[in-house]
Design a protein around this nucleic acid. Structure first.
Lengths: 191, 191, 191, 191
DNA sequence: AGCTAACCGAGACGGTACGTCCCGTCTTGCA
DNA sequence: TGCAAGACGGGACGTACCGTCTCGGTTAGCT
């Protein structure tokens, strides 16, 4: 019965949010600035999103092209391709990594945002989980944690780059972990 | 010639900061509140620290008892002990995890804080690195990333607990990864 | 062309406006609230009136029963009756005074409303003017100003009540002023 | 012990408030604009005043030069002089009248402001009351209401000017009313 | 033993962003 | 096809904290 939501305003808000988050850093992003840049009243932002984090998350989702990678026929190669593509997406010239870091930060500071962020994270986990399942009878959640954990850890702490070398090493170690005979470690003694 | 720094004020500030960070969440922590709770002027906080994050980091360092763990004689067991102890520290009744999450968040939003936090992180990495070096001729940085990465990832996203089961699985997989013969994965074909 | 509903909506709007103005005070009255309470779209309010003030003014006019008073045969008595009736209207249980105060306020803040309000005021002046003309060859506009001025002044500032005593004193003084020989004051010397 | 209130900021706020109230009309005055023009944070305004009305009232008090008038030796002449001076103050080139009208309006819309405004009004009443007491054994509060009431009524409704003619007529009628023998009106019959 | 400079608690300051309220206009879909 | 419903762009509100500054009072440690 009432006027319907303006898809135009929605797009302008999402665009403005992502543009400014990339330009000035997520930390400097403000709702005021998003609304101003989108040419929108602040209320129109608050009507549909609860916080800058939710706006940016939705913008990112909208924006995120599915990352494609070639299937190579063995676990390590596939992982390598997947991680290379993923890292390229994060570190590319559109620099998504800083935005992701901002969202992860917000998820820590704003309890209301964490569940939304968790859903986003789970979507990515699912992709990796299915990749692993092609080669292992059952994928360990912990393996997923280790792969994505390593990626996020580097991205957040910044002690190492998300480059091809890291992708390849990660792929190698993860594959070795998955495919290794279960008790091989018992053969090893302390040096 | 001049009056010297008040050690008493310093302690009260650190205590107040950690107490309130634990009580109300790091996100709700403000310098005003720290100063008020410590019975201290705001200037006294700003005279010695640059931000709430630095106060809390120092408080955490002061507070952190070194985590001891028994040495078991093989990599997996040692890792298991180390991780169990670490998780117990984070998730224990003093709930340090939320504070750590807050600091990680701040490191993303405040570029000036990131280097300080990175030092803190590096200290922990060094401990784990040396543990690994007891069993492997050279420890892969990526293995460290995967272990701590998995831990932080779970802590930050909250999709799984930092419990004994997780510690044990992580230890198992990490050990397997380290000790597995290098090319074992080539034996595996796609399912 | 379905104007059938219009008159109904008009009445509901006027009723809602006056009801809420009396209930919560004119200052808290909003167009949104009027429309909601009337079960009407905001546009329907704006179609017929320019502001909340015009709605309330019209509601008041609609509502205002002509104040009757007995004619007594001399100026003071007539004034007394007129003022008693007027004050009773303003201060009565329906408490019109607060609404009148609100309209006077709006007339100060909204230049577009002032002319409308002035017409309303002039209507009341005309009644008093004609009362005076029954006893004086020509009624002084200033006398009207003094009588209604005193009333409004008390109503607005609230330093005294609009009670019977005030009505009577006002009637006495006004009558004295009107009927007094013109130069009587020259006989008086400073005390 | 703490930093003391800045007299400089206080003056800048009062000046800015009065300047803008006069320039753009009291109705268009905003706290934001006052703070901006004064070069002050909004909080500094709110720390010392509750609303724009209180700021403007204080500014007016600070600014109001005592209105002097010559004493003439009889009531009518004195009143004439007093009212002429008062009207000149209100209607003069600094146009205080619009500001006074704004304050009167605010007193109607903001219950918290009314008491403050009443004090201001009472101060003016006291001056007039004492003028009357020079010529009458006891000054009627109602006479004061009628004189100031007439002035405010004209100022607010704007149906007539606050000019010399009005001042003189008001003085004449008020004097007549005060000095007239009490029962003179009984001599008059209805026309 | 007294000076004096730096520190102390307190909190006012100029400022930014918040999230809310309401304005007056515009748009939709139902009756 | 007129109207209720309510989304829209906009502007001001009053609040919360930021990081800096000023205040009077308190100590140390050098003369």
């Amino acid at each position: 019965m009432a006027r319907t939501r303006s898809e135009d305003a929605r797009q302008r808000i999402l665009d403005a949010a992502l543009r400014r988050a990339r330009a000035e850093g997520y930390g400097k992003l403000t709702i005021d600035a998003i609304a101003a840049e989108a040419g929108v009243g602040k209320q129109t932002v608050y009507r549909w999103w609860r916080s800058r984090a939710e706006v940016v998350l939705e913008a990112l989702r909208e924006n995120a092209r599915t990352i494609p990678w070639d299937e190579k026929g063995n676990l390590e190669a596939d992982l390598r391709a997947f991680l290379r593509a993923t890292f390229r997406y994060a570190s590319g010239k559109e620099s998504t990594a800083p935005v992701l870091r901002g969202l992860m930060a917000e998820a820590q500071l704003d309890p209301a945002f964490l569940p939304h962020f968790r859903v986003f994270i789970e979507e990515r986990r699912q992709i990796l989980r299915q990749l692993l399942l092609r080669y292992a009878s059952k994928a360990s959640e912990v393996t997923v944690d280790m792969i994505f954990g390593a990626m996020w850890y580097r991205m957040l702490v910044g002690h190492g780059k998300l480059d091809v070398r890291f992708a390849d090493t990660l792929a190698l170690l993860a594959a070795r972990q998955v495919l290794c005979p279960d008790r091989s470690e018992t053969l090893c003694s302390k040096r």
